Amino acid sequence: MTNETAPVEPTAQHLFQPARVGALDLPNRLVMPPMSRNRAPRGVPTPLMAEYYAQRASAGLIIAEASSPSQVGYTYPNIPGLFTDSQVDGWRGVTGAVHANGGRIFLQIEHGGRIGHPDTSGLIPMAPSAIALPGYIHTPNGHGEPPVPHPMTTAQIRATIDDFTAAARNALRAGADGVEVHSANGYLLNQFLATSTNHRTDEYGGSIANRIRFVVEAVEAVAAAIGPERTGLRLSPGNPHNGIDMDDADQLFPALLDALAPLGLAYLHLAYASPTPLFAALRRSWQGILIANPSNPEAPEADPIPADGGLAAAARIMDAGADLVAIGRPFIANPDLVERLRTGAPVNPLRTDLPLYGGGAEGYTDYPTLLSLESAEA
């Protein structure tokens, strides 16, 4: 197969240089970010998931899809977990397959908070305050009305921190290289940060110092349990997803980073990043490794993968100060995305005729690589 290749700009070329994150040496700076695909029945990762991640092991780092630390933390149907032995065994198959292919993998820990439903978890969700998610929520029975969550007691907050630390230990027991604590995109930890979802009047609500407390305590506990060099944190400043509204993001996020800076975490991962004044302020506040998951204005509505595979957006966010770049949907459609971007080869489009969430191998592990296309044409 013959592909026309385009020259890689100098900034983008930096993506293919080695980096060190925590205790890991990475061959390149392209990160596969966490993307739920809803293929873990009963929360147990499957051999099909192991195949999917192993196909993408050329990424500098894989951050696997969100895993719940507890039954009440489940968000949507067929999300993996990290709190039972069978789930740990399932993840061990995934991490083993990635490592066998030369890759590195962190597992993400996500508690849904108010983003949950009894039809999925069997439990009423918990959240900072009794404020339901606006709109609808996906359940095993289709679109459901979000329940009003139970406001968490102090004891439940502490128990949830214990769940995060147990899940982190389970991730290492499963062979993962580390974990990412999910405090972005409107899930539980993000709900404590936002004034729209946190109406508490105790030590976990009100002031910025109080609203960041749960996140700080959870990250401190995880880092103490497994080591800060194996612990990352994901944030999404300015992202209104899942009903999040923050009127003091410019003050809150720098304060949060200042509180976490002494820990020496492996990385900070910013979702929906763009070169804004807030991004610049956070880059100044954070002296450690910064992974940015950039927005892609070049992505067409019909196929949310830009023709360049996200290279221009990656270059922009690296120019703004990111050390590594997380590129999402292009990794779904291109198992060998690193090689395609490095050589300027064309990228596969996303198969929008197939659901992203749920299903089997089709649209999951059957995207072609350059090598397979060349073999087919030989």
Rank of each mutant, 00 (worst) to 15 (best):
A209R: 05
Q251C: 04
V72M: 14
T197G: 06
N242D: 12
L82D: 02
S36R: 04
A266L: 01
P237I: 04
A378M: 12
E374Q: 13
H99I: 02
A249L: 05
R329P: 06
M246F: 06
A313G: 05
G122S: 12
E298Y: 08
T343L: 13
A261P: 04
A361I: 02
L235F: 07
I137C: 03
G238P: 09
L257Q: 04
P349Q: 04
G90L: 02
P47W: 08
G144Q: 04
G359P: 00
T5N: 10
F164K: 03
A19K: 07
E203D: 14
L133T: 09
A127Y: 02
S121T: 14
I131N: 08
H99R: 10
F331N: 11
L15M: 13
H269L: 02
D89Q: 14
D308N: 07
P240Q: 13
N170Q: 09
A261F: 03
A171D: 03
I79N: 09
Q87E: 14
A281L: 14
A184F: 01
P18I: 08
A378H: 14
E51N: 07
W286Y: 11
E65T: 03
L257W: 00
G90V: 06
A209E: 14
P34R: 00
V338G: 03
T160N: 09
E110N: 13
H138W: 12
G227Y: 13
A255E: 07
R29C: 03
M1Q: 11
N38W: 07
G60R: 03
P147V: 08
E377Y: 07
M152Q: 14
M126E: 15
P277G: 07
P149C: 06
A315C: 06
M32S: 10
S285I: 09
Y74G: 10
G243P: 03
G321I: 02
H199T: 09
H269A: 05
A281T: 15
G178V: 00
M126N: 08
I305P: 00
G22Q: 09
S86K: 11
G142I: 05
V31N: 01
V8Q: 03
A100E: 15
Y187H: 06
T160H: 07
P27G: 11
P277M: 13
N242G: 03
G186Q: 04
A23L: 09
G359L: 00
